[in-house]
Write a protein that binds this DNA or RNA. Structure first.
Lengths: 250, 250
DNA sequence: CCAAATTCAATCAAAATCATTCAAAAACAT
DNA sequence: ATGTTTTTGAATGATTTTGATTGAATTTGG
């Protein structure tokens, strides 16, 4: 077995399981202990993994993000279910727009179809997507500090270069007669534009967003399909008349 | 069997399996070991594959350019000194372009003048800048996995929206008669364009970049000021005739 | 805290692979 | 047909990789 192959296999095994014993590599490759040790040293040198006593561990670069982190804890479970369900709408070859925000971010780990092209206005999302081996384009624009979203003329301009099969956006408010809303007018403009360029629009929203209104208007209810968790019958009924709602399946 | 046929077959086999032993090629073609070795050398020359001990591997971006992580450790001290010195060139109100790359990234912690506007094609840089409270714009474009730089038409397009007082770029090679070079032609184009839009250009380069040539040409020596560490007298002299060099002060 | 067990880095000789050279064979031009 | 160039395969010694062995370092269990 060639050195390259071994290295590849070692990293592959580590991807499946974060920490592995040296002996596991020995068995998997059929090489001697010495050889595996050398391999691990090399790969550590290349920053591909970290050696630990008795084996090796996957390298982890955690990007902590306080403002983002705080948010993502609220309704975390609900968001995760919604995101996982939304990810199932992706098809081979799709070109999609992925909006900034915690709910759309939660989609990324659950994307199974790798053969898609994604455009996003969030550098956090972009990094995560590329990490997963997904073709990713960034809109460009002014980088807003607290949400890490790209906004402004630059973002709008970048966005106008593309057309999408589907777009997935997050909102802060959903109201029967108002439609979808978000606090920042600049972000609203971006979301609206993305929807305009897209054949289908999915709005990801947990229960807390319903019957709320934020400052800036994005679009009317009938312009998107809402993906959400199980709603109360009453609420669901009143909205079903105005728009299409997909509820997370059990 | 013709040379052409063998080459084709070799590449074909590599497409099926990323890494192959030399012996596999020998058997598949019925040629001698020597012949296959010659073939592999040639194909490597043509950048169709890379040779590894015992065989050959399919070309992968990953291998041709060391990853960000890997790079950041090489010449770390020297880079830091250069970056710190370069940061002193910033003036209140400046609009600058900050190129992707580890040396330019090292500038960010040392930026004292907060009243500047920065455009960058690296999402890593953008995040760090915004974190520091600096107005930051991102070019947009395709996100390259290993360097986290934005490239392609989108990046070019975004870049064209701005003009700069100064731009700070990194390079991989500096050669007297060749000028500045970098491995990826796409990135070279971005760098070149940024320089065009800028009144002054600073190239940040540690000693190891001198008398090296990478694949893609960026610009000639006289089109930028080089910021570097202390050089050997001989080297310094030969370059001083062709361009302007700022050496890190003690 | 110590001692046994495990894991480690360093060293070395054997095996595999490598670049280089050279002469024979093949393809080519004249 | 003859001489020239190119391609090929074998032989060479150099280089790299490998697995076993050693004693040192670390972890584990009492």
């Amino acid at each position: 077995m060639l050195t390259e192959e071994r290295h590849h296999l070692i990293l592959q095994l580590l991807k499946e399981k974060e920490v592995r014993k040296l002996q596991e590599f020995v068995e998997a490759t059929g090489s001697s202990e010495s050889t595996i040790r050398r391999d691990l040293s090399q790969l550590e040198e290349e920053k591909k993994l970290i050696r630990v006593h008795g084996g090796a561990a996957l390298i982890k670069q955690k990007r902590s993000e306080p403002s983002m982190m705080e948010k993502s804890n609220q309704h975390a479970e609900e968001k995760k279910r919604i995101a996982m369900y939304a990810a199932k709408f992706l098809r081979k070859g799709d070109c999609i727009y992925l909006d900034a925000g915690t709910t759309t971010l939660a989609m990324i780990p659950h994307i199974e179809e790798k053969d898609i092209t994604v455009v996003t206005n969030s550098i956090t999302h972009a990094a995560a997507l590329t990490e997963k081996g997904i073709q990713t384009f960034v809109t460009g624009g002014f980088l807003k500090a607290n949400t890490r979203a790209l906004i402004g003329q630059g973002a709008l301009h970048g966005l106008n270069q593309y057309s999408f099969d589907k777009c997935f956006i997050g909102v802060n408010g959903i109201q029967l007669n108002v439609g979808f809303t978000t606090p920042d007018p600049e972000e609203a403009l971006i979301k609206r534009t993305a929807m305009k360029q897209s054949l289908e629009t999915y709005v990801l929203a947990d229960r807390s967003k319903f019957n709320e209104t934020a400052f800036a208007h994005i679009a009317h209810l009938n312009q998107a399909v809402i993906i959400t968790d199980k709603l109360e019958q009453e609420l669901l009924h009143s909205y079903k008349e105005k728009t299409s709602i997909k509820e997370v399946e059990a």
